[in-house]
Amino acid sequence: MSRIHFDVTHPAHVHLFRHAIRELADDGHRVVVSSRDKELTTDLLDAFDVPHTVLSAMGDRKAALVSEWALRGVRTLRYDRRFDPDVVVSRLSPTAVASATLTGAGSVAFHDHEGTNRLAGALAPFLDRLCTPASFEADFGAPHRRHPGVQELAYLHPDRFEPDRDRLREHGVDPDSPYFVLRFVSMGAHHDVGLTGIGPAARRRLVETLAGRGPVYVSDEAAGEADPPAEAVPVPPALMHDLLSEAALFVTDSNTMATEAGLLGTPVVRSGAYAATDEFSNFAVLGAAGLVESVADESAAVDRAAELAADPDSGERWRRRRDAYVRGAVDVTDHIVETVLEVADE
């Protein structure tokens, strides 16, 4: 049996790796998880019953960020020297890759954001596998492996996810009546510098446009609580995908959540600065599949959202497109497990 270390430093990494962590552990492999106290990362790990060790906490200033990652590098190396892993798995984490190199462990990294291709290129020589979606045009050399389908299929493939409608009802959400979900991000990540999301005026117009058709649930990293007639998202973070799955429409400037909604068969309009770029090849594929509509102009995005909200057949159309897309993709958790064990055995 293999000894496997997963390094989880962001909420999205929890979802990406949680099924693989459980499957490997259930199969008798020794699996440990190191975490970072960032946003909802540790809360999600706890909600999904994933034991973990916190190695660092996110600071609120750039100087704090530098010192945090320096400290994390030291702690990760100590952690691996104690655990002695066969392979270290991360979402393109420099500290995890460095620790694997210094301890002689194999190293596997997953990458799906072309905006960090320079980092991926710098780390590639130290990796045994660098896994990306097949849509990536960049070539990272010998360790590069491409898989069909986006990485969110690790947890939203139909074989992995089924919405819990009863739990939605427990939180006051009626899955049998139309409701709408809006998600706005703060654009504070290092790769978001100089970019903006959907502006306040367009957000207000979205709420006013949709509120006459059903409840409007808003998650806004920048503004916090939703202003009436919108409501705050009524479910805990671990149920966010259940909420998205049953929504009549999702509008966002979040790239990850736009992808998630499309994979759940929910009509989705993506706007904000990223919608005007070709930085994410995933969206060329998802757009061609009819799963995500990217509309850079805010006013046009609101208009398109209104059209979809008024279209009673949009949900069924999206579900058919989702089913067609998934038939040509893979269960990415299976790909993670196979890759990790392949490297552990080398």
Rank of each mutant, 00 (worst) to 15 (best):
V216D: 02
G149L: 04
F136M: 09
E162P: 04
S177W: 07
G194M: 08
L40A: 14
A96P: 03
R183I: 00
F184K: 02
S107W: 01
R18Y: 13
S294E: 12
L92Q: 02
P133W: 10
R304W: 03
S271L: 03
P312W: 11
T42P: 01
F17G: 01
V295S: 07
F140Q: 12
V235I: 07
E231M: 12
L45D: 03
A64Y: 05
S281D: 10
R3C: 03
V66D: 05
R81Q: 13
G149V: 02
G73N: 01
L77W: 09
T116H: 12
Y155A: 12
P94G: 01
A232G: 14
A189M: 13
A310Y: 10
G172F: 09
H29E: 08
A329Q: 11
N282H: 15
S107L: 02
V218M: 00
D323A: 14
E293A: 15
P158W: 14
G265H: 07
V235M: 05
D84L: 12
R82G: 05
V235T: 06
L195G: 09
G315N: 06
A154P: 13
D27M: 07
R205G: 11
A226D: 00
D192G: 14
H144L: 06
W69G: 00
S2C: 02
W69P: 00
V268Q: 09
N255G: 14
G121L: 08
K62F: 15
S294Y: 02
P85E: 07
A202I: 04
R75I: 00
L24W: 12
R72V: 03
P148T: 02
L16R: 03
S135R: 13
A122M: 15
L210D: 06
